[in-house]
Design a protein around this nucleic acid. Structure first.
Lengths: 205, 205, 205, 205
DNA sequence: TATGAATGAGTCTTCATTCAT
DNA sequence: CATGAATGAAGACTCATTCAT
């Protein structure tokens, strides 16, 4: 394979595993079987390597998640379920995605934050929020649910558990949770909440 | 105030803002108005500074969140609501908490991960899970909800949105979301799901 | 002596001998008996080291040459002679001066050029030119002599020969030329030209 | 044009503008529209490129300046005037010449110094000095003028002002000095000195 | 001729750490 | 307690040079 592609793959993997700030270029290089000078040959400098990671690795996932959106044809619930499924699928094929997204984009001071912010499909997100807001006005959303926060909740229920996997997998009870279970759990939570709704009754004891 | 305490405060703030890996000791020192040598005087070395951050800043929050737990007296829903509220309260008083927790504990390769893993109140978490599992067996939980994943979902609906605040606050629609709204949203989502449940009917197109 | 002062001395010497561009910081450091990190400790980076060289080594010479100028009390010839003598004296005590000035200030692309240009005593130079121009209008200057070029000629007759010394000293005939001879030669040339003037006669054959 | 010739032209121009030490081969190459590898193809390595610059660019100027010398037929003054004019003419057609000569040959540590020293027309220079010495013995030279230093003075009054042009052109008073003026000034200075000679009288206060 | 890929060596810079005072 | 001086190690980047094609 192309050395440049190999470097990008190695980069995202190491970035996800150890964090961008903690990953020297030389380490990426040696993992990819070349010298550090080659990384400069292909990417000129660290900043541009990060640019390339955004353009050539992250953006394709963003598109895969948002592009197939058909706001006008789908119900709000279908939109949500679609997003969850596509996020889960992206994370399953590229296991570096959740860590990287959380540490370097979501979290303050993340090294890809500004870069990705410029490239996010804001139009899609806006439409998604508008759609949910309309649904709320029609009484479809739970009263206390805030349409504007749904997307971030969605990330919180998918990418965060995935990024944390290596933690909770170490707890005895949680060793055998699978991608599928996690997806189903997130969907269920989003669509129905944690608890069975008892019509006309209150939630106590 | 004690220089040592001031250093710890400065440390957590900078760690949250820029990441541990990207925060040199000298920077913490100068922000706290002392020299780098003083940091070594108080904490001996970088590793021990991180230990102190765990012991003296993070752990108190973990305890504040878990300690008041009365599994036997509260319903599952009450437990969940209590956890959410205490997490939100901790984050509100210590704005550095969400970023730090996400980047350095939750995410793979986080520099506090191993340290905190040793110190997590596993007993509490186990009990919480057990409690939820029992609730599920009794039919109180939505069928597809996985009790073992509830805690991680809870983090995903609180700390992640808080850590990401500075991102979504920049989007025009999301500028004015408050801590309270976020807490209410998370609770509502956990307790009822996104959508109003229409008994016996299916989601309409 | 102060390590900082020692570093500056070493720096000007090496810069003069090998050129700024060809002198690594580590070389300066080791010649001064410290590590390269110390140079950064004292000067932060290469640029600031060059700033310090200007401020703390070159500027003092500029002042020594120009400061004692008394345009109103001295004749043009006396001014010229004074400048020559002070330049020669500065070069004699600081043998690195001519090379450094020529390569790094006078010559295009010199690394101290912009830095020194900002700091040159333009007022003094202006006055000097004005003074000579007045002298020319009064008929004191040779007709083809251009007052504005006198100062640069003066540098050309002092610093250039001094910087080139190590070349012509290698030629057999020129081994034993001294600072004094050079100063006298420059003065003589400036004041009388190369040749004995034959009144009323032309300069041929 | 020949790529090799183009490379040499680009090289001398860049060397003059930024200094040899600060000019990477890749820069020369790209300015000439080829790759760095081509520079190695034509010149084998950096050292040999410098050799070629001497042989194929500098030497021709040295010859142009010295070759037409007819020591036996011309007076000392004529020799001097001829040299000045030929130096000025060379510099006018090849604007890179003064900088390059000053920084890389005249000044200590210049990267072409040793190379050119071997190739200088020492015979010519010797004869020139001898000629002037004879003139001095005959009383034609000003008493304090040192025949051995005349040649270096000559460089100082021509190449140095030319190399410094970009400096003094920036001073308001000196913007419009031309090559011709500079040549006339140098000649005048050499032949008559700065000041009108007042026979039997002293310079007035 | 001409190039892209590749590298080793060198340079600047940062930083945790130590230590004498 | 507190600091300034000092350093070794590591990391980013540059560059001359080589080589297969």
């Amino acid at each position: 394979m192309d050395a440049r592609e190999r470097l990008l793959d190695t980069a995202v993997t190491l970035f996800a595993k150890e964090g961008i700030a903690a990953t020297p270029i030389a380490k990426i290089a040696s993992h990819a079987g070349v010298t550090a000078a080659m990384v400069h040959y292909y990417f000129t400098n660290r900043e541009r390597l990060l640019d390339a990671v955004c353009e050539e690795r992250l953006l394709r996932n963003v598109n895969a998640v948002w592009a197939p959106l058909a706001e006008d044809k789908e119900s709000a619930a279908e939109l949500v379920r679609g997003l969850v499924q596509r996020i889960m699928r992206a994370a399953e094929t590229q296991p570096w995605l959740p860590s990287l997204w959380l540490r370097e984009i979501v979290t303050e001071g993340g090294q890809l934050r500004e870069r990705m912010l410029k490239r996010l499909p804001l139009g899609h997100i806006q439409k998604f929020i508008t759609h949910l807001s309309a649904a709320k006005r029609e009484g479809q959303l739970s009263p206390a649910v805030e349409p504007r926060l749904v997307f971030v909740s969605l990330i919180g229920l998918t990418l965060l558990p995935l990024a944390a996997m290596n933690i909770w997998r170490r707890l005895p009870l949680l060793q055998d949770v699978s991608y599928e279970e996690l997806g189903r759990h997130a969907e269920a939570l989003l669509l129905h909440g944690l608890f069975v709704q008892q019509p006309k009754s209150q939630r106590r004891r």
